[in-house]
Design a protein around this nucleic acid. Sequence first.
DNA 1: CCCATGATTCAACATCTGTTGAATTGGAGT
DNA 2: ACTCCAATTCAACAGATGTTGAATCATGGG
Lengths: 225, 225
Amino acid sequence: MPAPARPRGPKPTRMDPDQILDAALAVFAREGLHAASLRAIARQAGCDPALIYYHFDSKEAMFAALLARRFPPIRQELGRLAEETGERPTALRLWEAIRILHRHLKDDPGIRSLIRGEIVRGAEGLSDLIKEQIRPIALSIRQLLAEGVARGDLRAEVQPSLTTFFLVRMELEILDLVPTVLPRVLDLPPGDAVANGLATWFDLYWRGIARDPSMPLPPLPRLDA
Amino acid sequence: MPAPARPRGPKPTRMDPDQILDAALAVFAREGLHAASLRAIARQAGCDPALIYYHFDSKEAMFAALLARRFPPIRQELGRLAEETGERPTALRLWEAIRILHRHLKDDPGIRSLIRGEIVRGAEGLSDLIKEQIRPIALSIRQLLAEGVARGDLRAEVQPSLTTFFLVRMELEILDLVPTVLPRVLDLPPGDAVANGLATWFDLYWRGIARDPSMPLPPLPRLDA
DNA sequence: CCCATGATTCAACATCTGTTGAATTGGAGT
DNA sequence: ACTCCAATTCAACAGATGTTGAATCATGGG
């Protein structure tokens, strides 16, 4: 006859699946996607690892839920920007794209390391999940660039696909690497490293693609809000 | 009484530690640094996992040996380029830096994914090992840029630290991501993607930093050899 | 008041990881 | 021919990982 009588049962407070996602994001942010263990996520969320399997089918499903929560708003905003038929000059539209990405990604190192980790693995690692989320974003920006060429604001030689890649990748790189790596490797004083980095980058980028690079950039709205 | 009589003993052919490093590199290239297991490396090398511990103290030591084999030649070439006191215009010197990096890294996806993986992890992940190997490389390029400013070839506002970062990071990104990710996400036809990407990038970069961006680039030597 | 159902936990599983100690072999030196 | 050492392998360790089945609790409905 066994004598089991241990305090199991649920915590008094219910656990919202969103709280688990928050915890997962936090752990991904500091451990990387691959190294983040379910037990670490559960510890961060303050629950049992098995509970995660009650709310999500698997680790991968949790990952998918994370993407589904973060990407659609970005897609929508960039989509609106690309469809917009106003008179805004190309430089301002591109800067607006950077601002949108920045607003949505700057406080979410988890999703960034997650994107990078999966994308960087290469062709087969780029899970179709991520590809589907990212593709519309890239297409919107490519459209901005193509229209810039058509309007004559950009050089005729500009290759929209490649320059889209330059823009988006460097945005991510600056967010993650400039504040941490640059001070250690190149003795750059931290300070407002990210804002300075992005502004400098856009200035360089714009001179690189503009038909008339000597024409100074219009005053750009600040990065946040 | 046990009855042990199994065929142990060494393989007929001795195993050069360099062969193990080659195998490690191959596995790192396709699995990523973190996910690459010693057993997978041993399988690739065709030896027992324990043998790796005979030649190297640990996985980390093997990693260090990999870096020590690859980086010093790059450091030397870039160092010579930075010290060179000739008349070569700044644009050609910078393009030469890109060519040097390209020559040494283009056939070594293992070392690239290894650099990226460790660097991207952020501040504490950037092991001092890598930092010490990379720092001199970055410093050489920064010196090229600073001299370009001093000579009046580059804009006065150019920030050498940041623009060094732009140059080096995008080189790595192009090598790894342009051929694999771009065709899948942005429908870019593969073909000579890397060479085209690097040339396009340098053209954009140069217009971004040059004092006179309208002055066309001099003819650039081909990337390889 | 009872019971069904949803939420939570415990304990265990098989598997993989880096690492080590002891056993075994081949060949070089004498 | 014998010895000794370097090189290699086997088997096992302790710990971590993703996952699952069954047990437990809390609570709302009848």
